[in-house]
Design a protein around this nucleic acid. Sequence first.
DNA 1: ACCTGAACACCGTTCAAGT
DNA 2: ACCTGAACACCGTTCAAGT
Lengths: 209, 209
Amino acid sequence: MKTAEATATSAGEVHAVVEVREKGSLDRATIVRTGLRLLDEVGIDGLSTRRLATELGIKSASLYWHFKDKDELLNEMSTVMLRECLHLGNANEPGFDALDWLADSARAIRSTALSRRDGAQVMARPLLKPPNTKTPLDDNRKALMRLGLTEMEARLAMHTIRRFAIGAAIQEQSSPPVPGTCTAAEGFEFGLKTFMDGLKVLIASRAHK
Amino acid sequence: MKTAEATATSAGEVHAVVEVREKGSLDRATIVRTGLRLLDEVGIDGLSTRRLATELGIKSASLYWHFKDKDELLNEMSTVMLRECLHLGNANEPGFDALDWLADSARAIRSTALSRRDGAQVMARPLLKPPNTKTPLDDNRKALMRLGLTEMEARLAMHTIRRFAIGAAIQEQSSPPVPGTCTAAEGFEFGLKTFMDGLKVLIASRAHK
DNA sequence: ACCTGAACACCGTTCAAGT
DNA sequence: ACCTGAACACCGTTCAAGT
């Protein structure tokens, strides 16, 4: 006796649980969310507009009413993933340490990227223009500036950290673990610590000026 | 009077200068070289097996005699690009400075990646198993160890530098220049210097142990 | 050993047309 | 406003068959 894993409707097709929805109820957020779920199942190469449309219960042509093209969709997925890993603590909290926050945000970016199949490749894409994530990032940048960094240095430090974390995750997801070396996580921590040490050198040089 | 840019044969098709070659003369190296040239013309999305085959004057099916699949071809292109930027100076030379060499190799990786269209995306791919580049890299790692680093730390430093350079180049090639910030090259130098400063901190801590 | 012909099972995107 | 049908111009890959 076969126990079907499928849903209520008895017949036919096994995989691809199709979403049921009424006419006007499909928006960009739903498409992006479904895209991210599908990414985990099929990977970046399997994530076609046709497959995604099937998953959403529509035809692929319909996607082009919501998005200009596939690139725009992927960029929005990238933006959502970055937003996912910014719930980290705000500069206004009591025991806030800007350097700890910076290192932790690097770890969060890496693990968010690693949390889904080909996640790093998605996060390496450009972000959409207006991330409303502006506010917490602004606060944290100011916290870095209070340590003695210029505005541009603070901006660059955050930028570099993000770049390093995504670069590391890309390599981890695309290459087999390098033989004769430690684990990927340890390698990441080495790079992160070294960068943070360099940043402390810069801060120290600002302090006694 | 039209001045045709085409080659000797008078007629027909304008673009795609097809290579002329006798039967057994096509090898992996030629295919990879042509692939890299074509990459500059059409970008990673335009680089199809069919287009490449046309460029080589063969049918796309023939590529599968030389390579298992497109992935293997792209990985070999990645390996060749990395090899391109390792003619930098060897640890056996007179005025050799291991830290300078490390920073310079980061710059070389970045500029090699930026030197061709979508080059960073290609370099982010896994390398093929046996790069004969082993020898110069080994010497340079030993030079780092002479400064006080353990073998693993030296390996990790080289690894991190490569990761950072490729990560930076990927972002530069896929995102528009960030507004309100300095140039990409300046941003890269900031990250590089900070990392190198951190490395010097580590070396100093080893020195008085 | 090296290459082709022809097919298989797909793609992203457009656009007139439907509701 | 939102979606479909149908087409256009492509893909990567396989495999029997040619030389």
